[in-house]
Design a protein around this nucleic acid. Structure first.
Lengths: 326, 326
DNA sequence: CTGAAAGCGCTAACAA
DNA sequence: TTGTTAGCGCTTTCAG
């Protein structure tokens, strides 16, 4: 790898001059500029980012902390962040925290040791205090922490109400809810939306609520149990993966979906279109959320004023076969 | 952020001494060591990785280049790499290349500018020459390039033969293949396995081969077309996502799977268990592959001799409902 | 318009 | 056993 000194030597100028043409700052003679550029070309010189970072204390790198990339909700989010960050010439360090506060803190330290310019956080485990102590620009994605931090979230509460209401509209009266883990704020908000809508419809019954963990297996088990012990004609699952679990349970009991029991999920991940029947769901604009968080972070890093820092994106009901009754 | 100078000052020693206790090299008095450690503790000092990297030319960071993290095959692979790298205290920079050679080269340059210690590559676009020019340890994952580079792959050829044979064994005689994109080596090997097995069974007919792109939509379309124009009683799809497309096509035509047409996929991603009927498939040990590639890379970075550098992992036939005929 | 020199925070000789 | 010094590759004053 050629260094700036090699370029300087070849062009017959000082390193300072090379640096000036590289960063387009300061004055430099057109002629010498040309010579320098030639030398750079010739040696295929690429500036050493590490040295640059050490001096400037900015690395053109950001950290992205997600619970678990294997959870099908996150790949698209991660992809969006990467795409946008690339446009602005940032590199992305990916960290899986498994929702563990300890791991998150560790990663934050590691990221800071590398002078990352910013962090996108998808987490619930850290307290507001802990997060605001991070002296690096932070954007919170998908999971609201506090109004003092820029964040991008979808309207979980409304989405849940819409889903519940939709089941009611197609004729369901005993609507169960499989909720996500209680330590995930999203899951709680979805539950709240479900509860409030059910109360408003005069259908609320706490017996109809079952605890899931956002994974298929447990959701299938609780649904199996629910369908066998209670009369249920609709299921609102806290995410699409659990909706698939519910679907499998219904199919195992030879129930017709949607006529015996209608099912709706949440997230609109690609999976929801792959089942049979295809799953109705509440669509979150996953890619947009990631892209928006990335753009917000860039703005924060570059010190631009952020006109609006709390973004709550609208969600949309997607009706598919699993709630299309004859 | 405290620096090493702050620690040295507080402990009343030179920075060299602090460095010595930090890196546990050279001699240092027990007493002073204790004082230094106390100072480190007190200031919550974390060494600046950037400065360290600049000096040592090693960053405890690796690059992981995948085609597209939103492709459901990759999250688990990425997760495995991250998990293993973390054990060895490496951080992972994630890059999506979209199978574009240009993007790959760009990323490799970026990674080298950051002194990454190694790169895991999941790609076909670069030539052997280009890859071996990278003067950073490289491990090739999932897609074989050349025998001079350490690599981890699954036995695609054998897997494809197994899948084809399995369809034959359950009674299929007109077995179609939906192949993956031709620029992906994996897809070609799977096709080769299919072709050879079909020839051996005396069933080979090139009309039965359809070109897909590893995505659902096109696979569904070609299957629709295939089922309507030819008599087909079995389909071997080049990956699970395309198998879902085939399944949807069959269901749209009111064909019974597996009795009218049996379907088998490839990869054994979580999706394959989520459809109805559940998909038979050829299981690749995805997590293991990622983990093994990561361990290989660490060994290469640390200069350990690698006893065996070509790892071809066995695959396994998973029979599920989509090929269980009555 | 250009060069010399200092320094980002750390590590590794080399002396003491 | 410890401190002093030079330097990783770059950028930025400060003089010229």
């Amino acid at each position: 790898m050629a260094t700036i000194r090699d370029v300087a030597k070849l062009a017959g100028v000082s390193v300072a001059t090379v640096s000036r043409v590289l960063n387009q700052n300061g004055y430099v003679n057109k002629e010498t500029e040309k010579r320098v550029k030639q030398a750079i070309e010739q040696l295929n010189y690429k500036p050493n980012e590490v040295a640059r970072t050490l001096f400037k204390k900015t690395s053109r790198t950001i950290g992205l902390i997600v619970p678990d990339i294997s959870n099908p909700f996150f790949p698209e989010l991660v992809r969006a962040v990467e795409d946008v960050m690339n446009i602005y010439d940032y590199t992305v360090i990916l960290c899986n925290s498994d929702e563990k506060g300890e791991k998150e803190k560790e990663y934050i330290d590691i990221l800071k040791q590398r002078y990352v310019d910013g962090i996108i956080l998808t987490t619930n485990q850290l307290t507001i205090g802990e997060v605001s102590k991070i002296d690096v620009p932070v954007v919170v994605l998908d999971r609201p922490l506090d109004h003092s931090l820029p964040s991008v979230i979808a309207n979980n509460y409304e989405g849940a109400r819409m889903a519940t209401r939709h089941l009611y509209d197609i004729g369901c009266r005993r609507i169960a809810h499989i909720q996500g883990p209680l330590h995930v704020v999203n899951a709680v908000e979805r539950f709240n939306g479900y509860r409030d809508e059910m109360k408003e419809l005069g259908l609320w019954d706490e017996q109809l609520v079952f605890l899931g963990d956002y994974n298929l297996k447990l959701a299938k088990e609780v649904t199996l149990h629910a369908l066998q012990t209670l009369s249920i004609d609709g299921i609102f699952a806290g995410n699409d993966v659990m909706a698939v679990g519910a679907l499998k349970a219904a199919q195992q009991l030879d129930l017709d979906v949607p006529n015996d029991v209608a099912i709706i999920g949440y997230d609109n991940i690609p999976l929801s279109e792959m089942t049979t029947p295809e799953l109705s769901t509440v669509s979150q604009p996953i890619y947009q959320m990631g892209a928006m968080a990335a753009r917000l972070l860039v703005k924060k890093i570059e010190g631009q004023s952020i006109e609006q820092s709390q973004h709550k994106l609208p969600v949309q009901l997607i009706q598919r076969k699993s709630t299309m009754r004859e």
